[in-house]
Amino acid sequence: MELAYYPGCSLEGTANDYGRSVVEAFGLLGIKLREIPDWTCCGSTAAHSLSEAMTILLPSKNISIAEEMGLDLLAPCPMCYNRLVYSLDRIKRGLEDSPWPLTGQVSIYDPTRFLSQQEFLRRIREGVKRPLKDLRVVCYYGCQMVRPPKLTGFKEFQNPTTMDKILEALGATVLDWSYKTICCGASIKMGRKEIGLSLSFKLLMKAVEFGADAIVVSCPLCQFNLDSAQFETGKNLLPVFYFTELMILALADSAVSINFKSHLVDPSPLLIEKRLYNL
């Protein structure tokens, strides 16, 4: 099975570790990701803030190429995902005209909903080589993948469970908590650092309070905010994993292919303690 893959700028830059782990994790389940040739930036918050027409039209370039490839589209970065579905929705409703050919016949997926379909959960469960038992995690979904529900189609937008299901299938102990979709601060740190830090720390403290060993995310910006807030303040509370990293850890023949050097808060002591990782 193949999907068109839209990495977006983060997965090529600060979150290249996420990008690599997405490709590998999907590969382990027999899904090949084909990168969209010459993809361009989705516009992110900047286009959304300054140019409403660009924010609709920028993503359409990439959707158009995916359609040409004849494949459904996977966007692992929630911001990109949100911009892509927003663009497609507005163009379908005739609010702007895409300069690139677009039929609107393509499905756009976030990776957590794609992999939490019954068929893939079964494959995950059957493929687990190193169950993540004793690893107590909270899944953190953030905003853009989930809201607005009318656009994302997330039915349980108050309490999403797509990542919870995947982590359970990997054998982890998934804790319930009420901060799954509270904002981490997004890009506000670019101008108001103290607001960003306070939002990130609220989540980190709550995760600790709920008894988690680690936070699991599917968003490069959430990972960066939660990870770097700890680095910047010198308060190391708990590591922040991409769910795809934990998939590789549990599913790959040898866990050696994955390294956690890119993390600011080093997860290896925790994983060694849980006997999930040996260096």
Binding site: C41, T45, A46, A47, S187, G191, R192
Partner: peptide
């Protein structure tokens, strides 16, 4: 101001 400049520079790089 800083946020606005950030967005403008972002569009420039984009």
């Amino acid at each position: 101001k800083e946020l606005e400049i950030f967005y403008r520079k972002f569009m420039g790089e984009l």
